[in-house]
């Protein structure tokens, strides 16, 4: 897999350890321009670890390999730099933030990017959550929508969305899919990466590329037909 001009993100043989344990081994994949990448894999495949390593969690140590984003080697860059360059992640389960109102956190992000909290809230139908403490007592769907709202507020060049469709009611999936489409539209490169194990979001957004991750490694990548194969054979069948 070579770094071409069409690649927004290029991950080359990345091996990552956390607390002395290898969580990602020789991971390689890329996200091109105008690409909707689905990163599929069963629970425990290392999808969330990959996302944290990409955004630069300090306790995720890159042992070998490279991460190139937007033409720059960010393998050793601090998280702050990666985010400022336009990389963003939507977490599978955001933490509950005591005493911090959802509105205030979104406003802090919007202060940097010039977005409108109310517009984002309308879009994700979270107006009624704005004056509540961030994440506290939220349902699964509400948590996803508020998390996606923070990403929409960030206006990233490329967003990685972790499990937007797990533990979420059908109505929320539709709202989230609409917001993800907007993220694709505002992305400088018209791209997004969606991490999912159920792929139920594919009912609303069809991938252009699919990679399958199993046991901390990306096993193979291809076009959207892989999605149908996963639905037919499951991850176990694919691995075999």
């Amino acid at each position: 897999m070579a770094l071409g001009h069409d690649n927004v993100l290029y991950v080359d043989r990345l091996t990552v350890g956390v607390g002395g344990k290898i969580v990602l081994r020789d991971v390689s994949f890329s996200v091109g321009r105008n690409s909707i990448l689905f990163l599929l894999g069963p629970n425990g495949a290392g999808k969330t670890s990959l996302l944290r390593a990409l955004i630069g969690y300090p306790n995720y140590n890159v042992i070998s390999g490279k991460i190139l984003f937007d033409g720059e080697d960010i393998t050793s860059s601090p998280m702050e730099h990666r985010v400022s360059r336009g990389l963003a992640v939507a977490h599978q389960i955001p933490p509950k933030l005591t005493g911090i109102k959802a509105r205030n956190l979104l406003a802090e992000i919007c202060r940097r990017t010039g977005c409108s909290v109310d517009e984002i809230a309308d879009e994700l139908e979270i107006n009624y959550l704005l004056n509540r403490e961030f994440g506290k007592g939220f349902s699964g769907g509400e948590l996803k929508r508020i998390e996606i709202a923070t990403i929409v507020a960030q206006r990233p060049k490329l967003a990685f969305i972790d499990e937007p469709d797990s533990g979420v009611d059908i109505d929320s999936v539709a709202i989230i899919a609409r917001a993800l489409r907007k993220l694709i539209n505002v992305s400088t490169y018209g791209s997004i990466a969606i991490i999912t194990h159920s792929a139920s979001i594919s009912k609303y957004i069809r991938p252009t590329h699919v990679c399958v991750m199993i046991s901390g490694s990306v096993k193979f990548c291809g076009d959207s037909s892989i999605l149908d194969e996963v639905f037919s054979h499951g991850f176990k069948g694919m691995a075999e």
Partner: peptide, 10 residues
């Protein structure tokens, strides 16, 4: 929680 906020650009 600190890392989460840092991932949002702080």
């Amino acid at each position: 929680e600190i890392y989460y906020l840092m991932s949002k650009g702080f």
